[in-house]
Design a protein around this nucleic acid. Structure first.
Lengths: 204, 204
DNA sequence: CGGACAGGATGAAGATTCTCATCGCGGACG
DNA sequence: CGTCCGCGATGAGAATCTTCATCCTGTCCG
């Protein structure tokens, strides 16, 4: 079983390699950033699994992962991150990632997950995927009305009021009022701050 | 690796056994219903994994699974079902189940999942868990107000108006009005029908 | 039979949500 | 410099949500 590990955090990467190599039947190759990983793949793409760090030079959010998946559709590609939120993990999986590995995972679980993914299955820690669903959303989301949530969603996608209005099939002033109201509710003073607060709360 | 399979559907159970036994290192024991499974466990509880069918005599929803988990906390218990909805799977996992297996799973994935769970990990098919999140809920849930949804949830748990009122900290007549309104919205003519419609829609 | 109780219906009131028209401010562009 | 565009704020109306008091129907039990 041959695995490519790409992470700019040396210590973590080395620990990971040590754990996996100790399993006997796992061969690991390392890269420090996305470019290096792609160079390695260009020379030899016979890997069972590629692990990419989410916060690694060259990744650019999920774009880097998707590029690798497009270029090597026969390889399972999984995302690692110590800080990524649940929405990011969900998007990665929706985009077809073989899995999502938070760096809080135990060594034992990690080895199991790696083997699992190398066999072509899709993995994610279920406590991570399900647990946070209730609390952080309801924290803020429960305070907002249906419309306000839709407006906030548009906002987090970088849309202008006019675009949001068109999407929701209402006039622009309506969107503006929703904006103002939801500012008050979540304690933001302008649209940028509102978008950041929504992100912090794990929304969208 | 020793596994207990409890399912009242003979054909499926036998197929499952055949697949798993063909892996060489898996030993399977079978039961036809929950009572039989518990009898087997009473004599010998050295199992790595117990697979329970959701629609099996004696299960009574998730209660049967939880009973087994309480009696044998050292054994991984997983739920199988061909018809269970996502909310049920989520509740099972939240209750501490080792996993959820829809019967649509491929044989290969199933064997991987079984091995995975027997090692103490938690498994669920991610496409099943993530995909259905939007459509079936929004169908009906989007029409109902926050309060009406809470009332409907209480209804699907078999509570009386008075109980729901106490839980929500309002007077009973208020609950009654919410009931009446949500009947109209979802097209039900009485509380029983409303509860069934909610279940059919995959709510709660 | 009389009462207790649960479910369902009606009327009414206040709060919230949703919609829009209008005004003011600041930056960008010709 | 004038104009346009996007953002934010205000005022106002309609619709909806939420709450409750009150009545009417059954059913079950003493």
């Amino acid at each position: 079983m041959k695995i490519l590990i790409a992470d700019d955090h040396d210590l973590l990467r080395d620990t990971l390699v040590m754990f996996l190599e100790s399993q006997g039947d796992i061969e690991t190759i390392c890269a420090r950033d996305l470019g290096e990983a792609q160079d390695i793949l260009k020379k030899d793409d016979r890997f069972d699994l590629v692990l990419l760090d989410f916060n690694m030079p060259g990744m650019n959010g999920l774009a880097g992962m998707e590029a690798v998946m497009r270029a090597y559709p026969h390889i399972s590609v999984a995302l690692m991150s110590g800080v990524a939120t649940k929405p990011i993990a969900e998007k990665a999986l929706a985009a077809g990632a073989a899995g999502f590995l938070p760096k809080t995972l135990s060594a034992k679980s990690l080895i199991n997950a790696v083997k699992f993914m190398a066999m072509g299955e899709q993995y994610a820690p279920l406590d991570f995927m399900t647990a946070e669903e209730e609390t952080p959303q309801n924290e803020m989301a429960e305070k907002l009305s249906r419309r306000e949530l839709q407006v906030l969603e548009g906002l987090t996608q970088g849309k202008s009021n006019k675009e949001i209005a068109r999407d929701l099939d209402v006039q622009e002033p309506t969107v503006k009022l929703h904006m103002k109201t939801l500012y008050r509710k979540i304690g933001a003073s302008n649209r940028t701050q509102a978008a950041l607060l929504a992100r912090d709360a794990g929304l969208f």
